[in-house]
């Protein structure tokens, strides 16, 4: 009997694969980030370790692993140790249902979209507990900011996702991709006949994704110029490294979702050459284009103020996303009146 057909073995293999994907991504996205920052700021970036700094992530990893994990006195040691574990687990769970190609998916759940969002919502608790357990005033300020920022941006994000659910009519991520088959004009991003504001919806989703993953210009949790290192101030060595890895894993999950919901997932943009390895290639191409945009935005826009951050969500994004939700409903149900 083929060992690979056994469900537990398959799940185990996918778990190992996902861990490797997340680890490799975290390591080399840091390098891409530093190289990109260097390019934008007109300096070479890391270029000493290996050719053009290609071995820099390995050197960074060895440095972080070699450091002692300190639990400073006065912290809530249990929660302090638990927070890095909790921050890493949700993105790993989310990746279990992300379809990378038409066959490459660990678990094709019928409620995959809900799965990603429910585990994504744990992330804020982990950052909050880490900051709170540190017993450091900067970390506690950062924890308070993380909670209010996440609550503010979860609402427009979920409203946008409800809009997409109305358009797709399913929560199965694989089916959502299948519906967008046949050229880039079939992608949800360009379905203006369903909702004239569809590109706006995508922009709202992208902004909320930046805010939920605590990326610049919304990285209020880790505002180096005001809060030392925010929620991770007291973490050293690999404790800090895990938070950093989780941030990149969250970016990967967010960009995967944006790719699946709006950019057609593994569907080819020209209508041919989709499926199999081509599909995986298209998916990764779209994914890394979005991730590059995230890095590009970080080094282009300065950090916002906390009040303008909250104002943007409550006064601009939520009303617009409500309007797109209503508009989609109207456009979908209006033809029923004239049947």
């Amino acid at each position: 009997m083929n060992l690979l057909e056994l469900e537990p073995i398959r799940v185990l293999l996918y778990l190992v694969g996902i861990c490797a994907f997340v680890g490799g991504n975290a390591a080399y996205l840091v390098l891409a980030e530093r190289k990109g920052a260097g390019r934008i700021q007109r300096r070479p970036g890391p270029n000493e370790a290996g050719w053009a700094g290609i071995l820099q992530p390995i050197a960074d990893g060895i440095k972080l692993l070699a450091k002692q994990v300190m639990v400073p006195p006065g912290t809530d040691s249990l929660l302090f140790r638990a927070a890095p574990l909790m921050v890493m687990a949700p993105p790993l769970m989310c990746l279990a249902t992300i379809p990378f190609s038409d066959t490459l998916v660990a678990r094709n759940l019928n409620i995959g979209l809900l799965f990603v969002f429910s585990f994504g919502s744990i992330n804020v608790m982990a950052l909050m507990l880490g900051g709170w357990a540190s017993r450091n005033k900067y970390a506690i300020i950062s924890a308070a900011r993380v909670v209010s920022q996440s609550v503010a941006y979860e609402i427009p994000m979920l409203l946008v996702v409800i809009t997409m659910l109305m358009v797709a009519g399913t929560m199965n991520l694989q089916e959502i991709i299948v519906q967008q088959a046949g050229g880039f004009w079939h992608w949800n991003l360009f379905k203006v006949w369903v909702n004239p504001l569809m590109p706006v919806t995508f922009v709202i989703f992208f902004i909320c994704m930046l805010a939920e993953t605590n990326r610049a210009p919304f990285d209020m949790a880790e505002a180096e110029s005001e809060l030392v290192a925010g929620a991770f101030t007291e973490y050293g060595g690999m404790g800090f490294g895990v938070f950093f890895m989780a941030e990149y894993a969250n970016i990967v999950v967010g960009c995967c979702l944006a790719t699946i919901l709006f950019l057609g997932g593994w569907q080819s943009p020209i209508g041919v050459l989709s499926g199999g390895f081509w599909g995986l290639g298209w998916f990764l191409l779209k994914l890394y284009a979005l991730i590059f945009t995230v890095i590009w935005i970080r080094w282009t826009f300065p950090r916002t103020q906390f009040y303008s951050l909250l104002n943007l969500s409550w006064k601009i994004l939520i009303p617009i996303s409500l309007v797109t939700l209503l508009l989609t409903g109207v456009v979908m149900k209006l033809p029923l009146l004239f049947r």
């Binding site: 919502s121 744990i122 804020v124 608790m125």
Partner: peptide, 13 residues
């Protein structure tokens, strides 16, 4: 999933 989304993600927060 609703238990996680609502109770962990919203009520605990």
């Amino acid at each position: 999933l609703m238990e996680i989304l609502i109770y962990v993600g919203a009520v605990c927060v």
